[in-house]
Every structure is written in structure tokens, then in C-alpha cells.
Design a protein around this nucleic acid. Structure first.
Length: 420
RNA sequence: GGUGGGGUUCCCGAGUGGUCAAAGGGAACAGACUGUAAAUCUGUCGGCGACGCCUUCGAAGGUUCAAAUCCUUCCCCCACCA
């Protein structure tokens, strides 16, 4: 291959792109290889970079944790590179052991396919659909024969598989590791072979799997991919990685009100990190926010409200963020009523086997799903968290007729408008 | 295959015949406070129209006035040995 020199213009472009690639990431390895690939593209000696990221559709929704990588992919896309999403329909059935302290439950294929549909819809809230290649890794794994699998397995050693942290920890903790889990990194690595990856993105905990891709690509005679790792977004609990199963996530498909509320529930220390990883605000603005947060006279709440607004606006029509904020302030700060709430008419109550002339409050709450059980409803009443038209009710045996429109409030967030 | 250890309520984890709906921690929910669904403190935390009753401690049987605790069989996990 002839190695023509880059012109000054191209050198600048190379530098610019590498800078964008690296912004907000943890590691780019090996950087010189990526430079070489990118230089090849800029000189027209090869096509755009094939940028890979895989997602296992293990739950129906993607959340802000996923978007950290997707946002980075978008940047690649905007620079003219080819983004390739790998939907891990097969890998989902194995379950990624990364960061797991136990074997994941195995999902049914049907469930996985359903999930992958909603995944795709949600991806394209950020990525440009027309410029994105979507591949299912079942397409190649389905065709493999046992010997092919053995061939793949021979490219990697047990020692290397076991040396990864997750397995080491599980061995020490004496929690089981199934043989199929050892295959996970090999499968992910083989994806890179199958779709000819130039660079693969993943969270830092993915480093092992990403690097396995390099080894396996080389074993198959291909140029190894580069690896770009992203920081892990902490969940709304402020401690653990954001994940659906931990319930500490903000889903991209959630209603503005929920999104905003969840954003407000993150610990103050996570504000800057959320701005950096989960929003499009500039690096300069993130720096500014960091500074403001370190000042004693700045109320973190205001920045958090800004965060909530920005996040909501990213996934909903213009102005939704502002509306969600106003709603939040009305309901929580001023303790007023939300602008809309679920309703129940006398007819609805009858359908729930509640007599509108003698409503037993405990049943009203439980049957309208405002509590998990009658017992819980009873306890909430006794705890003083239930009110009707603003008047606290503490008698667990309270009964009343539906003679006018009234508003039931349970806790801070659950409302029900009762209509005659 | 052998030997030893283990499976407890959403999670982690105490409990070895009655005083156990089961310590403690976490999560969750609520209350107070607050400029926040942050933080902090407090309470609740199987179900039931409820000072009582019903269902839970891997599964199924059994012993006993009484079992998470004892016995039998089975299922699953871990370690070491092979």
C-alpha cells in the first residue's frame, strides 16, 4: 500500500476527529492504530470507519445508561463514519457476565425479538436511521456448526477467560459460573469478525470483551479493531450502574413527568456526571456546572432542574422540559395539584366492586392500584399520607359516599380524581 | 463418584423445637424537615374490613401438643478429593 503523506489540511482534520472521538471517553486503545485507520480513510485509501456497538435486548427499553454509547456513535456518524449496531439476539440468550455477580436468567427468543423491536425504535431517537446498519448476531451464529464453534473456542484460552475480574470475583465468592458464560466474550468477539469492525465502543466494564475482539479478529486473519471505552453512568440511586433490573434507570421512552422526577431524584453529587454523559451540552458548559456545584452559595437543585429539563427535551418535543419543570414545581414545591391525573367515576368504582354510596377507603386505594395491597393502604392511612380534598384521613376504617367530585391523594405523587 | 458445607421473607444475611411473620443491613414506601422525588432524622416494610385469623423459611412426606429449627426422600448450589 502506498503511503502518501497527509496534507496539512488532512492532518488537521485527523486531529480534529481524534479529539472528538476521545471527548468524554475513558480509553482509546491503541490510539496509533486508530490514527492509521482514520488517515487511510481521509486519504481515500479505505472506506469510512466501521464503528460497532452491540446491545443485548434483555429488556424492552433502553435507558440513559445505553445512550452514553449511542451519543458517541452519533458523533462518529456525523463525521461520516459507518455506525453498525449489533443486536445481540443470540448473545442475549447467553447473558453477558460483565459486572454480574450471578448467572443471568435466560430469556425466551420471542421475548428477545420483541425487545429488539422497541430497542431499534428507541435507538433512532438519537441516531440517524438511514445511515445506520443494524445486524443481528443470530444471522451468523445460527449458521455455525459445532465444529465452527470449536474452531472459535480454540482461539482463546481458559486462563485468559478466567482472569477477568467478574469471574475471579465469582470464583472467590463461590457463586456458580456456567460454561456457556465463558462463551460470551468469544461471541461478542466473533461479531467483530463477522461485521468487520474497525472500532468498537463499550462501557469500561466491557474492556475485556472488547479486547477479546482484537485477539479473535487477528486469529481469523483480520485487522484488529480499536477499542473505545465510555464511563459508566450511575443510576438514580447514585451508587450502582444504571440498569433496568436494579430499577434505578431513566428510560428514553418515559413520560416527561417521570423523566424529570427521576432526574430530580439523583443525588446532588451526580449532577455533573449526568450532564456530561447523558446530555448534549458542551464540554465548556459541563466545566461551568462543575465549578458552580463546588460553590457553597449555589443551590444544586437549580442545576438539577436544568438537567431534568435538558433530558426531557432530548426525548420529547421542544418545551416539554419546561412544562415538566413547572408541573414538578407546582406539585412538589407548592404542593398543588398536577394538571392532569387519573380519574374514576361512580361507574368505574362499581366495576371495581366498590359501592359509590359507601366507599371503603382502604379498598378504594388498593383497587385503584394506589397501593400494593389493602394492608399497605391501611398502613398509609395510619401513617398520615392519605388525604381527600386536602384533609388528612387517618382512620383506617373511614367510609364515605361519593356525593361530589373529590380528589384523593396518597403519598406525594399518587392522585385520583373521583367523579360522580 | 466420594467427603464436607449450604439453600431463610424484594436483595444480603442472623436464627437450630415454643418467647418467630422470623435479628441486623440494603432497597422500597411514608412522615418530618428542606430551595430537590438530594441529604438528614423517624416510622412502615407477607396477606386479610384485622387486638384475631390465614399463608411463608428449596420440594414432598413424617415425628411432636408445638417445627425455619428434628427425621426421611428428592431437587439445586459450593468447596476439596477423585
Amino acid at each position: 500500500m502506498a503511503h502518501s503523506e497527509l496534507t496539512t489540511d488532512l492532518k488537521q482534520e485527523l486531529k480534529r476527529q481524534i479529539e472528538i472521538f476521545k471527548r468524554g471517553t475513558v480509553d482509546l486503545l491503541p490510539e496509533d492504530e486508530l490514527r492509521a485507520k482514520l488517515a487511510g480513510f481521509l486519504k481515500g485509501e479505505r472506506g469510512p470507519l466501521r464503528v460497532k456497538q452491540g446491545f443485548d435486548p434483555t429488556s424492552p427499553d433502553i435507558h440513559l445508561g445505553h445512550t452514553v454509547g449511542i451519543r458517541k456513535l452519533k458523533q462518529f456518524q456525523d463525521l461520516g463514519h459507518q455506525v453498525v449496531l449489533i443486536v445481540g439476539d443470540y448473545t442475549a440468550m447467553v447473558g453477558d457476565p460483565s459486572g454480574q455477580s450471578a448467572t443471568r436468567p435466560v430469556l425466551s427468543y420471542d421475548q428477545i425479538m420483541k425487545n429488539s423491536e422497541t430497542y431499534q425504535e428507541q435507538f433512532f431517537k438519537i441516531l440517524d436511521k438511514d445511515k445506520t446498519e443494524v445486524l443481528f448476531n443470530g444471522d451468523w451464529f445460527k449458521k455455525m456448526e459445532f465444529l465452527d464453534i470449536m474452531h472459535l473456542a480454540s482461539k482463546y484460552t481458559v486462563a485468559r477467560l478466567l482472569e477477568r475480574d467478574d469471574f475471579t470475583k465469582r470464583m472467590k465468592a463461590m457463586t456458580p459460573i456456567s460454561v456457556h458464560e465463558l462463551f460470551y466474550p468469544l461471541m461478542q468477539a466473533y461479531d467483530s469478525v463477522a461485521m468487520k469492525s474497525d472500532i468498537e465502543l463499550g462501557a469500561t466494564e466491557q474492556t475485556f470483551n472488547l479486547l477479546a475482539g482484537r485477539t479473535v479478529q487477528e486469529a481469523y486473519g483480520d485487522e484488529p479493531q480499536c477499542v473505545l471505552t465510555m464511563p459508566i453512568l450511575v443510576g438514580t440511586d447514585g451508587v450502582k450502574k444504571m440498569s433496568k433490573s436494579l430499577g434505578n434507570y431513566i428510560g428514553v421512552d418515559e413520560a416527561p413527568r417521570e423523566m424529570f422526577g427521576k432526574a430530580m431524584s439523583i443525588p446532588d453529587e451526580q449532577i455533573a456526571s449526568y450532564f456530561e454523559l447523558a446530555t448534549e451540552v458542551t464540554a465548556e458548559r459541563v466545566e461551568e456546572i462543575r465549578k458552580q456545584l463546588s460553590q457553597a452559595d449555589v443551590n444544586p437543585m437549580l442545576l438539577k432542574k436544568e438537567l431534568g429539563e435538558v433530558i426531557v427535551d432530548q426525548y420529547h418535543p421542544e418545551g416539554s422540559g419546561k412544562a415538566a419543570r413547572e408541573e414538578f414545581e407546582r406539585v412538589f414545591s407548592k404542593k398543588q395539584l398536577p394538571d392532569d391525573m387519573p380519574e374514576a367515576t361512580a361507574e368505574d368504582l362499581k366495576n371495581l366492586e366498590i359501592d359509590p354510596n359507601a366507599i371503603y377507603l382502604v379498598h378504594l386505594i388498593a383497587k385503584n392500584k394506589m397501593s400494593k395491597s389493602n394492608s399497605e393502604a391501611r398502613k398509609l392511612i395510619q401513617a398520615g399520607s392519605v388525604s381527600i380534598d386536602g384533609d388528612k384521613v387517618t382512620d383506617p376504617n373511614y367510609e364515605f359516599p361519593l356525593d361530589k367530585e373529590m380528589i384523593l391523594k396518597v403519598g406525594k405523587r399518587r392522585f385520583l380524581r373521583l367523579k360522580v
